[in-house]
């Protein structure tokens, strides 16, 4: 079972992962975006870490709802409301339960991904976060390692795609050949679930 501590460890691992990978995310974003994805997410997740230390929410849902709220407030780019909505919707879907199982997390994350698609209007294949998140949610029933592999494959599979959402879509065919920064950071977020499970 996954308790509030698990979700705090997830957010801490995500913060550390974004810190480690910020430069790579910004490099990917400089190819097809505005070169701020790494630094934006770094600022956002550091704010998440601070807020979780200060408020110490005691249910899985409360941890994710607070984290999502922080991302919307502090990121300053489109990834803020998108990741914020992902975590907040997931948190709301988990409700007040003090513990949840992996199947409940998968179902809640699916609600979160649906929220992201509704907010940003992206569909699978548009070269966005969704291309990593949806395969991860589909694979989560087989465990965190399977979700991680699916998300990483999904992110890599954005390389030959042409961007159809966001600033990268202005580049048209020139967006082909670059891995999507949002799909890459989504894969990092999913990968850190496994780290949180290891304790």
């Amino acid at each position: 079972m996954l308790d509030a501590d698990f979700f705090r460890r997830w957010m801490a691992a995500a913060t550390a992962s974004v810190d480690r990978e910020a430069e790579r995310l910004t490099d990917l974003d400089s190819a097809i975006g505005d070169a701020d994805h790494g630094s934006n997410l770094q600022r956002g997740f550091r704010a998440v870490a601070t807020a979780l230390e200060k408020d110490a929410p005691d249910t899985p849902g409360a941890v994710l709802t607070l984290a999502g709220r922080q991302l919307i407030s502090t990121v300053g780019g489109a990834s803020g409301p998108l990741y914020g909505t992902l975590l907040r919707r997931t948190g709301k879907a988990l409700g007040d339960a003090s513990e949840v199982d992996t199947a409940q997390l998968a179902e809640a994350l699916r609600a979160g991904v649906d929220g992201v698609m509704a907010l940003g209007g992206a569909a699978p294949g548009d070269k966005t976060m969704i291309d990593a998140l949806l395969p991860a949610v589909d694979a989560l029933g087989d465990g965190f390692a399977a979700a991680r592999a699916a998300a990483e494959q999904g992110a890599e599979a954005t390389i030959p795609l042409q961007a159809r959402k966001g600033r990268a879509s202005y580049l048209g065919e020139r967006s082909i050949g670059h891995q999507d920064p949002g799909a890459t950071s989504s894969a990092l977020l999913i990968a850190t679930l496994e780290e949180a499970a290891e304790g």
């Binding site: 919307i72 780019g77 803020g80």
Partner: peptide, 12 residues
């Protein structure tokens, strides 16, 4: 971009 998405997320 983020201006649109942030306002939508705040309204939600």
């Amino acid at each position: 971009g983020s201006a649109v998405l942030t306002v939508k997320a705040l309204i939600a």
